[in-house]
Amino acid sequence: MHADARTSPAPHTADDLVTAAGADHVRLVYDYLDAGDLDACASLLHDDVALDLPGGPVTRGRTAFVHAHRDHLGSPARHEIAHVVARARTVVAAGRRIGPGDDSAGVRFVDFFRIAADGMVESCTRYYHAEP
């Protein structure tokens, strides 16, 4: 008996594989930032990575990215990621940023990452939840 083409999984495109690798890199970015391993975090970033955080100018480059992301809002924090959605070289991560002295709820955020063709993180734009 031969496999029915309608029930066979669709082949993965190169873009799908890049997106999957990028999603893994995004998860590792948070893990490395939280562990304080800035070199490992930087190794996942494109050379000219851009970071757009609320309240400041866009930063460019690996070193600027890791320091700005780590120290945003005044101090290093722990990230609890609740959801990661990836499609077409875009990864969206939603979670909470919990810094020293924050209440147990932390600050909710959504990060939009763009993944370069080589699977490295190319850019990140962060949005915070705000009460209306």
Rank of each mutant, 00 (worst) to 15 (best):
M1R: 03
M1W: 05
H2V: 03
H2M: 05
H2C: 03
A3P: 00
A3S: 00
A3I: 01
A3G: 02
D4M: 00
D4T: 00
A5Q: 04
A5Y: 03
A5G: 08
A5L: 06
R6G: 00
S8Q: 04
P9R: 01
P9S: 09
P11C: 04
P11R: 14
P11H: 04
H12R: 05
T13F: 08
D15H: 13
T19S: 14
A20T: 08
G22T: 14
A23M: 13
A23V: 07
D24T: 10
H25W: 14
H25D: 04
R27H: 11
R27Q: 09
V29T: 09
V29K: 00
Y30S: 12
Y30K: 08
D31G: 13
D31H: 12
Y32N: 09
L33V: 12
L33Q: 05
L33P: 08
D34F: 09
D34R: 10
A35S: 11
D37C: 02
D37F: 02
D37L: 03
L38D: 06
D39E: 10
A40F: 13
C41W: 10
C41H: 10
L44W: 09
L44A: 07
L44V: 10
H46A: 12
H46Q: 15
D48N: 02
D48W: 00
D48C: 00
V49M: 15
A50G: 15
D52S: 14
L53R: 08
L53S: 06
G55N: 06
G55M: 01
G56F: 02
V58T: 11
V58F: 06
T59I: 14
T59L: 09
R60F: 15
R60V: 15
G61R: 05
G61D: 12
R62Q: 14
R62F: 15
T63D: 13
A64R: 08
A64T: 12
F65P: 10
F65G: 11
V66C: 12
H67P: 05
H67L: 10
H67V: 09
A68D: 01
A68H: 07
H69D: 00
H69L: 01
L73R: 13
S75V: 05
P76S: 11
A77I: 06
H79Q: 04
E80N: 02
A82L: 02
A82V: 01
V84Q: 13
A86F: 14
A88M: 12
A88H: 11
R89E: 15
V91M: 14
V92Y: 07
V92S: 07
A93Y: 02
A94K: 11
R96S: 14
I98S: 03
G99A: 14
G99R: 06
P100A: 11
G101Q: 12
G101H: 08
D102H: 04
D103A: 06
S104D: 09
S104P: 11
G106R: 04
G106K: 03
G106S: 11
G106T: 09
V107W: 03
R108E: 00
F109H: 07
V110F: 01
D111W: 04
D111Y: 04
F112L: 02
R114G: 12
I115S: 14
A116F: 00
A116Q: 05
A117M: 01
D118W: 03
D118F: 02
M120P: 15
V121G: 14
V121L: 14
V121C: 15
E122G: 13
C124K: 00
C124V: 03
R126S: 08
Y127C: 03
Y128Q: 02
